[in-house]
Design a protein around this nucleic acid. Structure first.
Lengths: 226, 226
DNA sequence: CCGGAAACAGGTAGAAATACCTGTTTTTGA
DNA sequence: TCAAAAACAGGTATTTCTACCTGTTTCCGG
């Protein structure tokens, strides 16, 4: 008998995790050997574990609990850094194409929507093990669309550039409905400086105004709705 | 042997649905007899069915496919109208308290977060069947918080009032990053009129500026992030 | 049929944001 | 250590938004 493929689950919703376990366990060639609900504990937990999964299924929309942000993207990067042999498949709900592309660029080996067939999960797992990656047509299209979009949004550079720490900070405060002057006061800066960052934000995100900035922030996990 | 409780699942994510089915089927007193992926087909499908579920588990975050919006809230209302005997339990991911309160007000009999224990699902199902409802402390707190919040946001009236059709329409366009003049042109209105609606929006939502409006829109399903 | 809400439209004023510049200092990475 | 990027700060001009008013018309429910 062939050795089983060891699977790790990173998913905050307990119900979904249990469900996935039930689904995966139905295949004789698959064993779920690791589970985690929060992103930031994954690497630590794995280091203390004696069984390292071959494939990790990571939920994209892990909530950024508390202060620290540790979404599916961060988990992917951290995992690849510490366990370069682990194959990573991203699971996502109703996410956005631009984000998927980012994930793949971050080094994820596969991508699945939660609204897929259980068989597809099995396929994906086998595929990342044997071929090293799994990209279905849907994902491919998303990536292509996104790349296509990138070049036409503003300039070739702008969309690829990512925000700096300060810019993210200010974007968050904008989402908190603070005005430029209020932000300046809060961060002990000149309003002119904040204004500069604001302009950079509009430039980099391709947003037309605050509405666009807020949407961008939410889409990219910089701000939350609640 | 006692009769089984018939369960219906309304959940767009196929994987989650399968998982839930697996979990639910593990209990001998429960049978999954109905499934739907989209909200707007539920009532129709049920009318054509000869087995009516006793309890419906409805995903709150059903995506508003295409033009028509038919989220968990609409499904709840439609179900209660057509099948008043069905008990409805809302399932939600990382949703917002204010929304939960709305759901309960819409007539849902119970509320569960997706990050709960499978046992809790079982408890909830039994509870809505025998006692007619299921509210855990977490939900109760959410509702109370929300009610508490309502009274202090702006005025007693403002937060309770809901937006008119026109206001929602304009809010959507604001989220699309249109300026007042652009909205006016698009809707064949005077910019002054749009301005008036804008002011009403700020007043009713308690938002301080567009950022607040966008957040409100997303929180209440009027606009989407993608 | 009447009252109230919604939608419409107008005005004035000031606050805030956006679009362009310019430059210096500090941090960081190759 | 050297160059690039980030953060900082300033100026000017214009657009857009927000906060107050005023009023009319239309439509719907009691």
């Amino acid at each position: 008998m062939q050795e089983k493929i060891n699977i790790g689950l990173v998913e905050d919703q307990f119900l979904f995790r249990q469900g996935m376990k039930a689904i995966l366990s139905a295949w004789p060639d698959i064993a779920v050997v690791f589970e985690a609900a929060e992103g930031y504990t994954v690497v630590e937990k794995l280091k203390g574990s004696n069984v390292i999964p071959h494939v990790m299924l990571v939920d994209l929309s892990l909530p950024p609990d508390g202060a620290r942000e540790f979404s599916g993207k961060e988990v992917t990067i951290a995992l690849l850094k510490n366990f370069p042999d682990i194959k990573i498949i991203i699971l996502s709900g109703h996410e956005h194409e631009s984000f998927i592309a980012q994930l793949i660029e971050s080094g994820a080996h596969g991508y699945l929507v939660k609204d897929c067939d259980p068989d597809e999960v099995h396929d994906a797992i086998l595929s990342v093990c044997t071929k090293g990656s799994y990209i279905n047509t849907r994902t491919l299209k998303a990536i292509q669309n996104n790349i296509g979009r990138k070049t036409k949004v503003h300039s070739i550079r702008s969309a690829v550039e990512q925000l700096t720490k300060r810019e993210e900070e200010i974007l968050q405060l904008i989402c908190n409905q603070l005005t430029t002057d209020e932000i300046a006061e809060k961060l002990f800066l000149s309003p002119k400086t904040v204004n500069g960052h604001r302009n950079s934000l509009l430039e980099k995100t391709g947003a037309k105004n605050v509405a666009g900035l807020v949407l961008y922030a939410i889409k990219n996990g910089i701000a939350e709705v609640g």
